Amino acid sequence: MISYKDAGVDIDAGNSFVEAIKPFVKSTFNDNVLGGIGSFSGAFKLPSGFKNPALLGATDGVGTKLRLAIDSKKFDTIGIDLVAMCVNDLICNFATPLFFLDYYATAKLDVNEAKDVVKGISEGCKQARCALIGGETAEMPGLYQKDDFDLAGFAVGMAEVEDIDRTKFVKEDDVLIALPSSGIHSNGYSLVRKLFFEKLQLDFSEQIDGKNLIDVLLAPTRIYVDEFLRLKPCINAMAHITGGGITENLPRVLPDGLQANVRLKAINSPEVFKYMSKYVEKDEMFRTFNMGVGMVLVVSRANVDTVLENCDGYIIGEVVRGEKCVKFI
């Protein structure tokens, strides 16, 4: 006789995992969550207060940053990254995050490792003020090898229909305000890994800016939901600076006929970007990494002082007439 466990899938471990993560999941619940953990789907009551609401969805992963988490056995922050990459996209369309779901696929479920991942996801959800209402864990030894696993996240938010397209609110002479990143965030890690560990052959304990390299590289992606909710009336548009950098992401909020002038000397880049810039061309750096700018706010001049007084942002440029693109000056 042969069992499912003989084939590499341990149902008992899966059940143990569900019990282990219940406290983390429940800590993200609010009054709109219907039911608990263990049903066939997560239920969420739509909040009131919207006049012409629309639901928006975003999905993402954390890319090959996950490879570093696996190799270093550090799993406590990668879940924050997962939430951040989804909710930071939602708020760029002025959607208030409502709930989140995760998908965790692995060769063999390690309950303690997976628990750390979900603990991070729950922390990310609390930072994003959304509820973790469900997820899926899959053991697939035929697809994944040894200690490998993968993550995907799914976030849903709500916005007023007329608020979704932000390009119509962006005007000539608007000011560009950078919200600092916490580091590399979750993009460009194929290049990061090739540079640090193949070309330079560094180890995880190499020091950068007084910190271990692995801690710098695994610093969790910053979540900007608080800033969005606090400053929403003063913001014309927001651009999440992910893969493609400022170069490719900022034009996504510009209407035709307007150009973003960004002053290079105004950008405050963390030491890790300065280190990489010794080996990677400047143009490549700016179209791969956030360079220290995790989110760009487009703000009318009349609102600039209010925004700057209520966040850690700083001015990096302005909107002018011209081709729809970013011009670094």
Results as ranks from 00 to 15, higher is better:
residue 261 N to E: 13
residue 296 V to W: 02
residue 170 V to E: 04
residue 19 E to M: 11
residue 183 G to M: 07
residue 291 M to E: 05
residue 326 V to S: 04
residue 157 G to S: 12
residue 311 C to R: 07
residue 241 I to M: 00
residue 86 C to G: 05
residue 60 D to L: 07
residue 288 T to I: 11
residue 200 L to M: 12
residue 289 F to A: 03
residue 273 F to W: 03
residue 192 V to C: 10
residue 61 G to E: 05
residue 285 M to G: 01
residue 44 F to Y: 15
residue 275 Y to R: 08
residue 84 A to L: 06
residue 51 K to M: 11
residue 320 V to M: 07
residue 225 V to C: 06
residue 288 T to W: 03
residue 40 F to G: 08
residue 29 F to Q: 11
residue 99 F to L: 08
residue 75 F to I: 11
residue 123 E to P: 06
residue 154 F to T: 05
residue 71 D to N: 15
residue 261 N to F: 07
residue 96 T to Y: 00
residue 193 R to W: 03
residue 223 I to Q: 00
residue 6 D to T: 02
residue 107 A to V: 14
residue 175 V to R: 04
residue 180 P to V: 13
residue 20 A to P: 01
residue 285 M to T: 00
residue 72 S to V: 02
residue 137 T to I: 14
residue 204 F to V: 06
residue 168 K to M: 13
residue 52 N to C: 01
residue 142 G to Q: 12
residue 146 K to S: 14
residue 214 I to H: 04
residue 210 G to H: 09
residue 197 F to N: 07
residue 189 Y to M: 09
residue 202 L to E: 07
residue 20 A to I: 08
residue 95 A to R: 09
residue 6 D to S: 08
residue 136 E to W: 00
residue 156 V to S: 02
residue 80 I to C: 02
residue 118 V to T: 11
residue 308 L to S: 06
residue 30 N to H: 14
residue 59 T to R: 13
residue 279 Y to P: 06
residue 124 G to R: 06
residue 101 L to C: 12
residue 181 S to D: 10
residue 242 T to E: 04
residue 115 K to I: 13
residue 11 I to P: 01
residue 66 L to H: 04
residue 63 G to P: 07
residue 20 A to Y: 02
residue 257 G to F: 14
residue 226 D to W: 01
residue 82 L to F: 04
residue 156 V to T: 10
residue 301 R to T: 04
residue 280 V to L: 05
residue 201 Q to C: 13
residue 202 L to M: 15
residue 146 K to E: 15
residue 149 F to V: 04
residue 49 G to Q: 08
residue 264 L to Y: 03
residue 131 A to R: 15
residue 285 M to W: 05
residue 316 I to E: 12
residue 185 H to F: 10
residue 303 N to W: 04
residue 158 M to P: 06
residue 95 A to C: 14
residue 101 L to R: 10
residue 56 L to E: 05
residue 75 F to Y: 14
residue 78 I to Q: 02
